[in-house]
């Protein structure tokens, strides 16, 4: 009985990241010896505060994690998201500045290209049956080159109020990027769960052979996941460029692949594919951003931030690994 309880507790996707966030918030409060971390102030009708920052700054990772969740659910992985972010930002920047394209057109073009990039990975994985790591590695290498080529290797500054709004604007007092991402999560979740796509994705990741034998077009489902990942990464690239009012093809989205994979894994979607939880990924990304902000707050240099992140992801993976589960299960059973 206690084993069963422990089991269900263990499997609940969002409890662990939520507990992590709580612990981090607590650490901030204890460190500050005040509730400043939790305070939200209103100015010009906009909300300000550390918590709000977490949502707005975390929005890019949330977005990439959204697509990554679907790719991981079909037993894949997309290492090219960082490079695709750079392509999206660079393309929009060039269209907006050098070609003075309308905002909608620039955004649409950037998203179309990044979705096509995702499709390329998808075709390599589903059509040619390359390992996902191998297939997406190609785009990871070449993509950043393409981004550099688009901007001629320069950092392109963008001064278009409409575009700046994407990453810096406010909607009904909340950061627009956070709202946009939350709405996108809602839409995707609704579409996947209301249509049969969610079932198809989970089935393809759970048992690809059985799904194909039951008449599912597995290759198409896989491609779709990679297209979604490309689209989300592209949008994240736009948010990143908008946020700093510049497209930097060299640094935009670097290390984003690990952040996104981390968010997905912490959120309860197994790297082996199958069942996925979008809410879990969203909270996972939130945890990651809270960690970053906390370290900043605790006076850890931002440059060092990767270290605790890496330790955390190793810890989470170890906890989820078969071996340690068995070991922990053994501890559980033993009367202490």
């Amino acid at each position: 009985m206690s084993e069963a309880q422990a089991h269900s507790f263990w499997r609940s996707p969002v409890i662990w990241p939520l507990a992590g966030i709580l612990a981090l918030v607590l650490a901030n409060l204890l460190h500050d010896r005040s509730v400043a971390f939790l305070s939200v102030t209103v100015s010009d009708g906009h909300l300000y505060g550390s918590l709000i920052d977490i949502f707005s700054q975390g929005s890019r990772c949330m977005l990439v994690a959204l697509g990554m969740t679907l790719v991981i659910a079909v037993s894949g992985v997309d290492l090219a998201v960082g490079s695709i972010m750079a392509i999206g930002g660079a393309l929009a920047a060039i269209l907006l500045t050098q070609h003075s394209a309308p905002l909608v057109l620039a955004v649409a073009a950037a998203l179309a290209v990044t979705a096509a990039a995702g499709l390329t990975s998808g075709l390599l994985v589903a059509g040619l049956r390359l390992q996902p790591i191998v297939a997406t590695l190609i785009l990871m290498v070449a993509g950043r080159g393409v981004a550099q080529l688009i901007t001629d290797g320069n950092v392109v500054t963008i001064q278009r109020p409409g575009f700046e709004f994407l990453g810096n604007g406010y909607l009904i007092g909340l950061p627009f990027s956070a709202v946009l991402v939350a709405v996108l999560y809602l839409i995707v979740n609704t579409v996947l769960r209301r249509s049969a796509l969610g079932l198809f994705i989970e089935a393809a990741g759970d048992n690809e052979t059985a799904s194909r034998f039951a008449g599912l077009a597995v290759a198409r489902v896989k491609c779709l996941a990679y297209v979604a990942s490309g689209f989300c990464a592209g949008l994240a690239g736009l948010l990143a460029a908008s946020n700093i009012r510049a497209a930097d093809p060299l640094t935009s989205g670097t290390n984003m692949e690990l952040d996104a994979i981390f968010a997905v894994v912490v959120g309860g979607t197994a790297l082996t594919g199958g069942r996925f939880s979008l809410l879990g990924s969203w909270i996972g990304a939130l945890l990651l951003q809270t960690l970053t902000v906390t370290m900043y707050n605790l006076g850890v240099a931002p440059a060092v931030a990767p270290v605790p992140k890496a330790l955390l992801i190793i810890g989470v993976c170890l906890l989820q690994s078969e071996k340690s589960r068995r070991w922990l299960g053994g501890l559980w059973r033993k009367p202490v």
């Binding site: 290498v141 070449a142 080159g145 393409v146 981004a147 550099q148 080529l149 001629d152 290797g153 093809p249």
Partner: peptide, 11 residues
């Protein structure tokens, strides 16, 4: 552009 280096390597 040095970016071609990456692209050629990728190809």
């Amino acid at each position: 552009s040095p970016a071609w280096g990456r692209i050629v390597v990728g190809l």
